[in-house]
Computed example of a mutant assay.
Amino acid sequence: MTASPPSAPPAAGPGAAAPLLSAPLLQRLNERRDGPGWRRLAFHLTVLGLGALLWGWPMPTALPTASFWALRLVGLLLLGWGLAFGFCAMHECGHRTAFAGKTLNDTVAWWAGLLSFYNADYYRRYHQWHHRFTHQPGLDPELEEAPPSTLAGYLLELSGVPWWIGKLRGHAAGLRGDFGGRPYIPAEATAAVTRSIRLQVAVYAVLLAASLWQANGTLFWFWLLPLAVGQPLLRFVLMAEHGACSTDSDGLSNTRTTLTLPPLRWLMWDMPFHVEHHLYPSVPFHALAEAHGHLAPHLVHTGQGYLAVHRDVLRDPARLALP
């Protein structure tokens, strides 16, 4: 039987045990600055821009056909990953730690959500409960849909199809202002979240109308298709964050940190340092690597790359199932 979340979630944090990071160190790590956020945003926009340039590149007469299509495929992947991983930019800015000021964080989060087909105002509240009830069945909203426990379910999850279905249903409900069964959207926030979702869908509608008016399919070719292509990699990395981890309230055991290549870590806004982020969500993304240096000896789950994590999980996909 699923437990009902309390109306007032408990405070988040590493728990009642002795702190793993000293107060002076944590105070320094918590410093919020604009510079790292602007640099990371510039990197993310460069990936998007380069991808769009290569994907939309008209065929030159001097380039062999095979080389041209190979470059276009690279462009499609880069554009797709840039769009899908806009989720990571939205996530960091949703914590209001990526930049120094609230307005800049909220603005970047909203537009990153638009690109990645999330709504930042809804997600921020949803995500607060995920932090308070991390990987606890019946409490963590990320477990509203049970994780896969078979190879077929695992492959379906990687495809992104369940994600698309969930997003379409969620946006449709948000347009109606229907947040029943979602205690992380309190009554006083319903109007603001509904307005935000309606504004987002209005932007999509304008872009769709422009694409149809010009008869060029821009919305499909430069957003919908690339986003669908980019989803499997995003699903691949997100499944590693809590998959096959404990379902108790211990942040050291219910979350996984994955050590990965710098380009992917940059595109993910350092989300691979996920245990560190969950233990200390007030620490900005650019300080998580330093936090990892202090916390590494205490971590229960540390993946040596995403491929290694998934190889381990695939030995027994049932480990992903909830008790």
Results as ranks from 00 to 15, higher is better:
residue 180 G to L: 09
residue 66 A to L: 12
residue 131 H to Y: 12
residue 52 A to L: 03
residue 309 V to I: 01
residue 248 D to H: 03
residue 114 L to N: 05
residue 186 P to K: 12
residue 262 P to C: 01
residue 216 N to R: 11
residue 237 V to H: 04
residue 203 V to M: 07
residue 53 L to A: 11
residue 216 N to D: 05
residue 286 H to I: 12
residue 103 T to W: 15
residue 309 V to L: 01
residue 213 W to F: 02
residue 111 W to D: 08
residue 95 H to N: 04
residue 28 R to C: 02
residue 225 L to C: 05
residue 89 A to D: 10
residue 209 A to T: 04
residue 314 L to N: 00
residue 218 T to F: 09
residue 178 D to K: 15
residue 256 R to P: 01
residue 259 L to H: 07
residue 25 L to N: 12
residue 2 T to F: 13
residue 270 D to L: 14
residue 190 T to P: 10
residue 216 N to L: 07
residue 199 L to W: 13
residue 270 D to P: 01
residue 182 R to F: 06
residue 105 N to R: 07
residue 267 L to S: 00
residue 158 L to Q: 05
residue 233 L to V: 13
residue 167 K to Q: 10
residue 307 L to N: 15
residue 44 H to G: 03
residue 155 L to Y: 07
residue 84 A to K: 07
residue 222 F to C: 02
residue 117 F to I: 14
residue 101 G to M: 07
residue 220 F to H: 09
residue 103 T to G: 15
residue 34 D to I: 03
residue 186 P to H: 11
residue 230 G to H: 01
residue 15 G to F: 01
residue 20 L to G: 04
residue 198 R to Q: 06
residue 146 A to N: 11
residue 210 A to L: 11
residue 315 R to H: 04
residue 249 S to E: 06
residue 91 H to Y: 04
residue 281 P to G: 02
residue 119 N to K: 13
residue 16 A to Y: 08
residue 247 T to D: 12
residue 286 H to W: 11
residue 56 G to F: 00
residue 24 P to A: 01
residue 18 A to G: 14
residue 183 P to C: 01
residue 258 T to K: 00
residue 128 Q to L: 15
residue 239 M to I: 15
residue 297 P to M: 00
residue 150 T to Q: 06
residue 226 P to G: 00
residue 205 A to Q: 07
residue 16 A to S: 14
residue 35 G to K: 07
residue 241 E to C: 10
residue 314 L to R: 03
residue 231 Q to M: 15
residue 183 P to K: 05
residue 193 V to S: 05
residue 197 I to L: 11
residue 152 A to T: 15
residue 87 F to W: 06
residue 133 F to Y: 14
residue 222 F to H: 05
residue 44 H to R: 03
residue 257 T to G: 04
residue 229 V to S: 02
residue 55 W to Q: 14
residue 207 L to R: 07
residue 249 S to D: 13
residue 160 G to Q: 08
residue 70 A to M: 12
residue 131 H to C: 12
residue 201 V to F: 13
residue 50 L to E: 02
residue 212 L to M: 03
residue 275 V to N: 04
residue 41 L to E: 00
residue 258 T to Q: 02
residue 44 H to D: 02
residue 272 P to K: 01
residue 172 A to V: 14
residue 223 W to Y: 14
residue 323 P to E: 03
residue 267 L to H: 01
residue 74 V to L: 09
residue 157 E to V: 14
residue 253 S to Y: 12
residue 223 W to T: 09
residue 5 P to E: 06
residue 84 A to S: 08
residue 112 A to I: 07
residue 179 F to S: 08
residue 119 N to A: 11
residue 155 L to H: 06
residue 97 T to P: 06
residue 12 A to S: 12
residue 66 A to C: 13
residue 48 L to T: 05
residue 191 A to D: 08
residue 197 I to C: 06
residue 64 P to M: 02
residue 81 W to T: 07
residue 134 T to W: 09
residue 87 F to R: 06
residue 215 A to W: 06
residue 321 A to Q: 09
residue 61 T to W: 10
residue 83 L to F: 05
residue 32 R to F: 08
residue 93 C to I: 03
residue 127 H to M: 14
residue 205 A to H: 08
residue 67 S to N: 14
residue 159 S to N: 08
residue 151 L to T: 11
residue 163 W to N: 11
residue 170 G to T: 11
residue 139 L to S: 07
residue 38 W to L: 09
residue 204 Y to M: 02
residue 74 V to D: 03
residue 24 P to T: 00
residue 152 A to P: 04
residue 96 R to L: 15
residue 221 W to L: 05
residue 198 R to P: 10
residue 248 D to N: 15
